[in-house]
């Protein structure tokens, strides 16, 4: 069933439809939150809280086709709120990582994820929304509240950084 229909059912009070929607989006939302917060704890918390907010507020979503962008915005906001709080918290001891999601990809995929996490906060957001959430430039601009051109330039700079880490150019290529 398409998101559009699931959203309409969820808006009519069908918790099962919302659960199915969550199944469609949970991986990419988690990857997005993990990229932004750089912590599995915070990512799991952010997604959990965001989905709770989304469920509570699903009736306020006027265009069911916009669910993906809408829930992305909620997750990004939760992540940023967590990051702001974290600045004020001095961790005494790093808690063990939770296992809400486990990585089942190639090792170099996780290397790339770590490279994303080392980007600046602005760059992490655009990369996650573009490639994990599969959003258009205009949609990302709406979620982040900035011009499309800004999204585009951040993406280009972020990709250049990632390419430099993941596939460094040879001297011959650089000199060309």
């Amino acid at each position: 069933m398409e998101d559009y229909e699931l959203v309409r059912r969820a808006q009519a009070g069908d918790a099962r439809a919302f659960t199915t929607l969550v199944r469609h989006h949970e991986r990419s939302l988690y990857a997005t939150a993990y990229a932004i917060t750089r912590s599995q704890w915070d990512a799991a918390d952010a997604v959990q809280d965001a989905l709770a907010d989304a469920y509570a507020g699903i009736r306020s979503l006027r265009d069911p086709d916009r669910f993906g962008a809408w829930v992305s915005r909620i997750v990004v906001n939760e992540c940023n709120s967590l990051l702001r709080k974290r600045v004020r918290v001095v961790p005494v001891e790093e808690p063990p990582e939770p296992q809400a999601f486990v990585w089942d990809g190639p090792e170099d995929g996780m290397d790339l994820m770590r490279a994303v996490q080392r980007l600046s906060p602005d760059h992490r957001e655009v990369v996650a929304l573009r490639y994990f959430r599969d959003m258009k430039l205009g949609e990302i601009a709406d979620v982040l509240g900035c011009p499309t051109g800004t999204v585009k330039s951040r993406l280009n700079r972020a990709l250049a950084s990632l390419e430099a880490v993941m596939c460094p150019r040879t001297e011959e290529e650089v000199s060309r």
């Binding site: 969550v22 296992q99 089942d104 995929g109």
Partner: peptide
């Protein structure tokens, strides 16, 4: 790099799942 980035989401397998 873009192809590898696009593969990341699906490699996270949910173990404990969210349910409303």
């Amino acid at each position: 790099v873009v192809a590898d980035l696009k593969g990341i989401s699906d490699a996270f397998v949910p173990r404990d799942r969210f349910a409303p």
